[in-house]
Design a protein around this nucleic acid. Sequence first.
RNA 1: GGGCUGGUAGCUCAAUUGGUCAGAGCGUCCGCCUUACACGCGGAAGGUUGUAGGUUCAAGUCCUAUCCGGCCCACCA
Length: 902
Amino acid sequence: MLPKAYDPKLVEETLSKRWQKSGVFKAEIDANKKPFTIVIPPPNITGALHMGHGLNNTLQDMLIRYRRMNGQPAAWVPGVDHGGIATQNVVEKALAKDKKLTRHDLGREEFVNHVWRWYKECGNTIFTQFEKMGWALDQSDIRFTMDDKRAQAVYAAFKKLWEKKYIYRGKRLINWCVRCSTALSDIEVEHEQRSGALWYLQYKGQDGGEGITIATTRPETIFADAAVAVNPRDERYTNLIGAKVIIPLTNRAIPVIADEAVQKDFGTGALKITPAHDPVDYEVGSRHNLEQISVITDKGKMTNVPQKYMGLPASEARKQVAQDAREAGLLVKEEKYVNAVSTCYRCNSPIEPFLSEQWFVKMDGLAKPAVNAINEGKVNFHPQSWKQQELRWLENIQDWCISRQIWWGHRIPVWYCRKCSAKGLTFATDKQGKEQLTKVSFEDGAQPIVSFARPACPHCAGADTLQDPDVLDTWFSSALWPFSVFGWPQETPELKYYYPTSILVTGYEIIYLWVARMIMMGLEFMGEAPFKDVLLNGIVRDKTGKKMSKSLGNVIDPLDLIQKYGADAVRFSLITQAAPGKDIPYGEDAIVGARNFCNKIYNASRFIQMNMEGIEGRLTLPETAEELCDKWIISRYNKAVQAAREAIARYDMAAAADTLYHFLWGDFCDWYIELAKARFAGKDKEHVISILVNVLYGTLKALHPLMPFITEEIAQSFKKFTGETGEFLLQQAYPAFDVSRIDDEAEKQMQLLQGITAQIRAKRAQLNVPPSMKIKVILFVQEPEQQNIITQYESYITSLAKVNELVSGQTISKPAKCASAAFQGIAIYIPLEGLIDIEKEKARLKKEIAVRETGISNRSKMLNNESFIKNATEEKINLIRTELHEMQLDKEAFQNSLEELG
RNA sequence: GGGCUGGUAGCUCAAUUGGUCAGAGCGUCCGCCUUACACGCGGAAGGUUGUAGGUUCAAGUCCUAUCCGGCCCACCA
């Protein structure tokens, strides 16, 4: 005998091994069929997967399994991402914690080796999780953004963009994260409201006059000031334009200039211009040809300032300068102020605008085709609302800073001859005593040689060439992912067959960082957008709607949940809440419900098996059925399958899950199995069993993309009755629906019997009639059609509502004092005199009458309204008429009962 | 400052695109070991659909205004 409750542990482990071993997850090229392709958004190797990955990949798995079962060659390409800064940070942290070492203690080469070892370890954790979640990913074929083939793709892309002059090097004011010690692109910067202060500083006139007062949040940068700017139309200051003012705490004089960028109504209307430390000032500075003075180093320390401030961290210098200005009588006022601070998306520390030479990709030429592709519907977003957002970003795109001053990543494939580029190269000695190229300056004469491996110098033929010290933005390799995974730039059969992919499933938070760039690169290198559809999933939050984070301690680990409830339950709980683009507040009750559903499936199956002793051979779904509930369940089943298919087709996975859940639990278990119980004793047992088995099996197949383990496990034990040949469900066909077996008439008839049953049950509950006590029920039926159904199928009512005597008819008599109910014009009487609380019953009757009265009056109004009769469909009008009629009958019945009770 | 979202039962979400007592799951309450399942069965309570107007025979759904959230983008120092 099977155990009473489903235990996923053993089942899941053996199945994932069997699947993996059998190779069912491998995709095969079939030139005669159109492929369905998804490339996985490669998880960063920063640690174990979280619930967001759980959701994202489960959605992909669902699509892949669904397509496979529909006979399409469906490839799901697995892989992981090296994760640039994020991974370097994580590894550095671990290094500090475990060995009290920094990356500089190891040196560049050893540190990179260390991260490679980390990758092996962390990658394995991730791959194990792939398996535990039941994702149909072929473990023997995993890609990594840093493996050799992907490195070739990165090089090829760099080279092509360089040759097209899309990649260039330039000195710009970039976003610098002092903590990560690297440049970042604009989208890697986040804006956060932080409270600080606004200081008003007095810049005295060089002529000894009052000068001008400016407002700033960054007094420490006054030493880098190149001018004070006012709005040209600001009458307060017109007389000062062209004059010189003295920077506080110095003797340096700077001009007052006029520029449109200055807002008259902010602060004093005068703005200090610091081209090297502020993006706006940088623009103003270049318009007015101002000097770019840097006073903060890449370490965030003061430099190039009066001795007193040298070497201070910028944040301390800020306080000190304000303090000193106050003492010098040059601080006019200080007010509290909340401003938007730029922060690093990887470590959340403040961003310093920093003037330096970096590598950039020129974007407008790449963005335009992407804009067109989206506008022409070649790429579609789900939900659609993201289309506009994506377009807006692409239309306002800035050049992309792709160089990072970290060690982990694809090295920039550019080399310099030590001799020919000598002036542009800066060296330092690291802790291991090795000489390292630390800085390259094209302005000072470095000559680039683009090459994957160490080249000889084309000028002097010397072999002493050195590679650029920077690495590429991790998103550079990610942008190539949809074709690099298939071996681009090689023209592989896979690339030809699988590109472009069918759909990208990813989180909306990387729609610019990743999605937009893949579209641009796909169009640039492959001539075609990399996917037709983009399905955005939301963020899995905690129950209160907060983002899960280690620091908040509200992280839910998918592995814990699997351990406790099973992978199917985890998957199902995520899918039921996965509306496209919507965040999911995830609490444990969702998964309990999903676990219970697994148990329900298991027990329904177990029950059917318990009644199958002696039954052998193939059981087909009967072509015709006489019995109402048979017709009904087959109709419901076909509708459910149809609805599920349609829901998946429009990427509404939650609706698919909901449909199948309610069909299996609400229709199949609560009604059909309950009715079947009585029939097991009779002649048509085998007929009933064949319906049970086939409908169950079909539902298991329909559910398989959602909950692969339990469905597979149960299906295995029923397979011999179905004539299926595929070893696994993945190799069997997703159930088809047969419209000819959708039977609305049967559903309507069944609804009548269910409704009457429910009314009787409710009455029993109200009157506290114990289940063991059988009762008599009198039905007053006026419609001959209804009477026919009741006569023929009264056993449904008697068995499910525990009735031992059912009388029905048009002209029957009933005892005076009955409990009464009504359904669709049928009056239901239960003679239980002793149990009825007269007053309560009367109150209830009045309420029932009142409800009917509103219903009747609404419907009468509609039917008397000419516009309604004119505009509404005939079907609708008839429905309203029927409802009105039934309500009138119900009302009468209740009124009579009320009168009889006195 | 611009844009996108959302506000429906105590909680989390539905509602076939304008069609009539507004549904489900969880929670709560009542009763049940009824020939699988107490991870279960039966039943009940609970809603002026954020607010105020408007269009319509008909509004949760469309329009206008307004309040309250969430998110994204942006160079007010």
